[in-house]
């Protein structure tokens, strides 16, 4: 930790970055915090938060207003993947963000990460809905006819909070299809089943970096990560493309049928 803080101070002091997004504890709650050269002494309070916030999404929202800034990020593996995608979609310019790696993924479990604590899944949900811990392979072992019923069970719980989109580091369209009346009928709850979820799933193909933040933010525990993993698996199988691991254009945009057109100015999903 001391090493990490030294690096952050160095980056800020040397002007390598103008802001560094990490975490600071307030009354026992780790909150995202912007360290700057004006408050170097506060870097001492930098903590590694077990609660994950999408620091890259915050960085993109700052850069939209202040494109001249350079921002450093305390980066988990998922942050790195998300920044790759944001760069592909021109939401951040190469060089606007610098990552300080935390190395947190399961293969290196020394750093705490909320994604590593498996969700608690109740027996009724396992019986009628979908166990959030299933891998796409395990889920596909369930007979196809039954699978759809299970998705229906999950989708009908949706309270249309748009949290899955709002928290997602790679959802940034100014005009979001989920709010287009012709695609998803804007009525009461639940939102049009399964259209709402299909639209988003299609958009996440070749884009989702499997950070799991959407599922963490879903008030009704819909296994969104599984849904998008399944879509991404199809992309990987068809095109041999691993989202977030390369700077190559995703196959969908190569084919010209991209789910959402990349834009020059970042909009933030909302």
């Amino acid at each position: 930790m001391a090493e990490l803080k030294d690096l952050v101070r160095q980056w800020l002091d040397s002007g390598r970055v103008d802001l560094f997004l990490g975490y600071k504890e307030v009354a026992g709650h780790p909150l995202p915090y912007a360290f700057s050269p004006d408050n170097l002494e506060e870097v001492e309070e930098l903590v590694v938060s077990p609660a994950r916030y999408s620091l890259e999404k915050l960085a993109a929202s700052i850069l939209k207003e202040r494109p001249q800034l350079k921002i450093g990020l305390l980066a988990r593996d998922c942050t790195r993947r998300a920044v790759q995608v944001l760069t592909i979609y021109n939401q951040v310019e190469p060089g606007q963000v610098e990552l300080l790696d935390l190395s947190c993924c399961p293969s290196r479990p020394q750093v705490s990460c909320s994604a590593l604590s498996p969700p608690q899944v109740g027996e009724v949900k396992r019986a009628l809905g979908i166990d959030n811990r299933l891998t796409p392979e395990q889920f596909e072992a369930i007979p196809a006819a039954e699978r759809f019923g299970r998705w229906l069970y999950e989708f009908q719980k949706c309270i249309k909070c748009y949290g899955c989109r709002d928290i997602c580091p790679v959802c940034f369209c100014r005009e979001c299809s989920l709010e287009h009346g012709e695609l998803v009928e804007p009525r009461d709850l639940p939102p049009e089943v399964p259209m709402f979820h299909w639209v988003r799933a299609v958009h996440m193909a070749g884009r989702c970096i499997d950070c799991g933040l959407c599922e963490e933010a879903c008030p009704v525990d819909i296994p969104l990560r599984l849904l998008y993993r399944q879509t991404n698996r199809i992309v990987r199988e068809l095109f041999g493309y691993d989202t977030g691991l390369t700077l190559a254009q995703p196959p969908f945009s190569v084919l010209g049928v991209g789910p959402a057109e990349p834009r020059e100015a970042a909009g933030g999903g909302k």
Binding site: G28, H29, P30, L31, A51, R52, Y53, S61, E65, S114, I159, K160, C161, Y162, G163, D166, I167, E216, A217, C218, P219, G268, K270
Partner: peptide, 23 residues
Amino acid sequence: LLSTLPLKTHPVNEGRLCIKGWS
């Protein structure tokens, strides 16, 4: 104000919000 985010460690919502909260 740029946006609203859920507080991940809050005892009531534990990092979730409804549409009104997000807006």
